[in-house]
Design a protein around this nucleic acid. Structure first.
Lengths: 346, 346
DNA sequence: TTGTAGGCGTTATCAT
DNA sequence: ATGATAACGCCTACAA
């Protein structure tokens, strides 16, 4: 006798349908449908009976069948560059929260910042007939928006430029926040202030850099190109960028970093060099990620209401989906002063 | 004349269907269907023509219609306790990657470790007829597995116990890894070794604690209950837990932390106290998250192949979905020695 | 090789 | 108040 491998037959049992219930209750499936939606067009008695049966058989209406007829899937797609990025995680969390509250399910797709993958991801969303899409690009939106708008699906971008008329966005006030952060440094007495940015010409990077320059200019400080270095938005890139700055004949006494993760690398490079923060050099980050209060020393940074931004993005999408034309959203950020900044040494 | 608000009519245009193409091509929709699947049952010529039309009209087959007839949605659901947790993010990334490679889309749901929410999430998955579910519980699986198996949907758990016969799991070798980590400390000469755990009796916590105790026992060291403190799996909880340990009459000379995030808080508490790591006290974490090489000093920790675990989970699910009975997976971890551990002071 | 005719599980519009 | 009946967009026998 051949060895008969035991296998579970998930595929065997199919979930109860509205018709199954109709059969049991001895009514038509339309009545069941009505009862399940507690329509006033059905006797309280039969409605109750039907609902009981539904409960007993563990009935769960098929969203796919419903989606087919209503042409709404109550589903949105979220494209991220990497779920791994803590910034993304929090925004995503906000989106998911808001979506769930409104009965929407969210498809998650990670593009890995790869345009090809991004494209296939969006196509997958199209096939699945999502009602809307949000793109959270902490990096560049290599996304071909033409393709997006061709889908005729509402789209909301988070922290990325607003390239088309079918696309809305919620963005952090990068420029104001960066200016403020830099002014904090200037106010402390710093004159040689560096900037460690992102590598990929990310939209946010450009804005933050602009804020940094604006602050310098307002204070009548010269912009010194050699004081800006570029990392990659990660700690791995922040460290070497900072090392380059430290190797300068006269290095900066303070550095404004593109984001907290970059600051992590920057702090590391400083410590490796045997220097102290903020005694020898002041550092400010951007984002206020969970680890910011726990760096050594605790990081002065710009707080972004990430979770809230995610929620706002979803709500924008909701409006878009219902035919409204939501306003572009600019979210203010807030400087959080901790211990990585101080007056420069005399 | 009343102000007429311009509104975009996404709802107006409906996507091209197989019938639309059929009409244009002057064939029946079945032929179109076949051509699109490049079935051998259709002339190369007509197939080509049809495919061209499909391309021209931007046809995207409706996954919802297909799902209705095939009873397979090529969709999986992933339940996480919080996307915000960096550990979760990486595992999620692995799942998503593997899923996308196999043409599966992933629904993401964040339970916030709230059982009620967890339940509604799973019900949502059921309605959407996902083909499988993976639950990554970095905390306790408050999830009612009875409900899960009742769904008749394959389930894979990551780092959580394996409670039922319809459920499979992939887990890290917590016990071995923790024993090894503790032995590293013992090998360095430490005798008073503390443990800072998670609060919620998480399964992983229990195993890691067991590994810690096993190492002590093997080395003939006494287990000292006052040397174990509980945090909450986050930095916020790690700091006060460590403070308690430091307040002891004779505090530990080394501490093994439940995870890296906890270690972050632990390091902070130590620094606040004016102590140095590893000179005064050695610290080892667990997970090897992205920031581990950048703590001050760089953290000795246990590396978990998180991304890979995510991929393995999906592959397990694939097998389950095809009726196979995959083996339970235990993934080995690896101790990464950095600079937060050293011999105790004489 | 192609077309015709269901049917998947809903919702929705008719009748009754 | 309830029951037929017809979509929704796709797949798949079965017929031709």
């Amino acid at each position: 006798m051949p060895k008969k491998t035991r296998r579970r037959q998930y595929s065997g049992q199919r979930p109860a349908s509205i018709k199954d219930i109709a059969r049991i209750a001895g009514v038509s499936h339309s009545t069941v449908s009505r009862a399940l939606h507690d329509s006033p067009l059905v006797t309280r008695a039969t409605a109750a009976q039907i609902q009981k049966i539904a409960r007993d058989v563990g009935y769960r209406a098929s969203a796919v069948a419903r989606g087919l007829v209503t042409r709404k899937t109550r589903t949105i797609g979220v494209v991220v560059t990497t779920v791994t990025d803590p910034w993304v995680g929090e925004v995503l969390s906000g989106i998911e929260l808001a979506a769930a509250d409104h009965g929407y399910a969210v498809f998650l797709a990670d593009s890995n910042a790869d345009p090809a993958r991004e494209k296939s991801v969006v196509q997958s969303f199209a096939e699945r007939r999502v009602d809307g899409i949000v793109v959270t690009s902490s990096r560049v939106g290599a996304l071909h928006t033409p393709m997006l708008s061709e889908m005729m699906v509402p789209i909301v971008l988070i922290n990325n430029q607003h390239p088309g008329k079918f696309v809305h966005s919620v963005m952090i006030e990068n420029l104001d926040a960066s200016r403020e952060a830099t002014e904090h440094l200037i106010g402390l007495g710093h004159r040689r202030i560096g900037y460690v940015g992102d590598r990929y010409g990310h939209h946010s990077d450009a804005e933050r850099f602009a804020g940094y320059r604006e602050a310098l200019q307002k204070a009548g400080l010269p912009f010194v190109p050699e004081l800006v270095a570029h990392g990659d938005g990660k700690a791995e890139g922040g460290a070497p960028a900072m090392s380059r700055l430290l190797a300068l004949a006269s290095p900066p006494t303070a550095v404004f970093c593109y984001n907290d993760v970059t600051a992590l690398g920057v702090l590391h490079a400083i410590h490796v060099r045997g220097l102290r923060v903020p005694a020898d050099i002041s550092i400010v980050g951007f984002d206020d990620l969970f680890f910011a209060p726990y760096t050594q020393p605790p990081l002065t940074t710009v707080r972004q209401p990430r979770k809230k931004m995610g929620q706002m993005a979803f709500e924008s999408l909701l409006k878009l989906m219902s035919g409204e034309d939501p306003a572009e959203i600019k979210v203010p950020a807030e400087l959080v002063v901790r211990e990585s900044t101080a007056a420069p040494q005399a």
